[in-house]
Deep mutational scan, measured.
Amino acid sequence: GTVHVGDKTYHFPTPDAAKKFAQEIAKKLNLQVTVKNGTWQVH
């Protein structure tokens, strides 16, 4: 899975790992999470 946070991109071996990371970052930074075609965006 891929997660975009601002101008950074993180790659994870599984979709679940990407989802978990995106949700944790969003919670920590009080941001929104959207997913499109398996790519997570934190914004």
Rank of each mutant, 00 (worst) to 15 (best):
A22C: 02
T2K: 11
P15N: 13
G6T: 03
T9D: 06
Q23P: 00
K19Y: 10
E24M: 14
P15T: 12
P13E: 11
H43S: 13
A22Y: 01
Q23L: 15
W40V: 08
L31I: 05
V5H: 05
K36W: 09
T39G: 11
K20W: 08
Q41D: 10
A17D: 08
K19V: 05
A26V: 03
L29K: 05
H11I: 09
V33G: 01
D7I: 09
K19E: 14
V42N: 02
W40N: 03
V42R: 00
Q23K: 09
V42T: 04
G1Q: 10
E24G: 10
T34H: 07
F21N: 00
W40Q: 04
Q23W: 14
K8G: 04
A22L: 03
G1A: 12
K19D: 07
F12V: 01
A17Y: 04
K20H: 10
G38A: 05
T9C: 10
I25A: 05
P13R: 10
T34A: 06
K27D: 09
Q32S: 13
V42G: 02
T9N: 05
T9I: 15
F21K: 02
N30P: 01
K28A: 10
K28S: 08
A18L: 02
L31Q: 05
F21A: 04
A18R: 00
F21P: 00
I25N: 01
G38Q: 06
K28V: 08
Q41A: 06
E24W: 15
V5F: 14
V35S: 09
V42L: 06
A17N: 04
Q23H: 15
Q32R: 09
Q32D: 08
F12L: 04
A18T: 01
T34M: 06
K28H: 10
T14F: 05
T14V: 03
A22P: 00
L31F: 07
H11P: 03
E24N: 11
E24Y: 15
K20P: 00
H43K: 08
K27E: 11
L29D: 04
T9M: 12
Q41N: 12
L31P: 00
A22E: 00
G1I: 07
K19I: 06
K28W: 07
G38P: 03
L31G: 11
N37M: 04
P13W: 06
N37C: 07
I25S: 03
F12I: 01
K27R: 12
H4T: 11
A18M: 02
G1T: 12
P15K: 14
H4G: 04
L29M: 08
A26D: 01
G6V: 05
K20S: 09
T34E: 07
Y10V: 04
V5A: 04
T39S: 15
A26G: 08
E24T: 12
W40R: 03
K20N: 10
T14H: 07
A18V: 02
A22V: 04
Q23R: 07
K19L: 09
K27F: 07
V33L: 11
D7K: 14
L31H: 06
P13V: 08
A18G: 02
T9E: 09
I25W: 06
N37H: 04
T14D: 09
L31W: 14
H11Y: 13
K28M: 11
T34S: 13
N37P: 02
E24C: 13
Q41K: 06
N30D: 08
Q23F: 15
H11V: 09
P15W: 15
W40T: 04
Q41S: 09
A22W: 02
V3S: 01
V42H: 02
N37A: 05
K27G: 07
D16A: 12
K27W: 06
D7V: 10
V33I: 12
K19A: 14
N37L: 05
V5N: 02
W40K: 02
W40M: 07
K19W: 09
F12H: 01
N30L: 05
A26E: 02
T14E: 05
Q23N: 11
D16L: 08
Y10R: 02
A17Q: 11
Q32P: 09
G1R: 11
F12A: 00
G1M: 10
K28C: 11
G1Y: 15
A17W: 05
H4Q: 14
E24S: 12
G38N: 13
W40D: 03
E24L: 12
V3Q: 00
V35P: 03
K20I: 10
V3D: 00
K36S: 12
T14S: 10
L31M: 14
K20A: 12
F12Y: 02
K8L: 10
F12T: 00
T2M: 09
K8C: 12
T14Q: 04
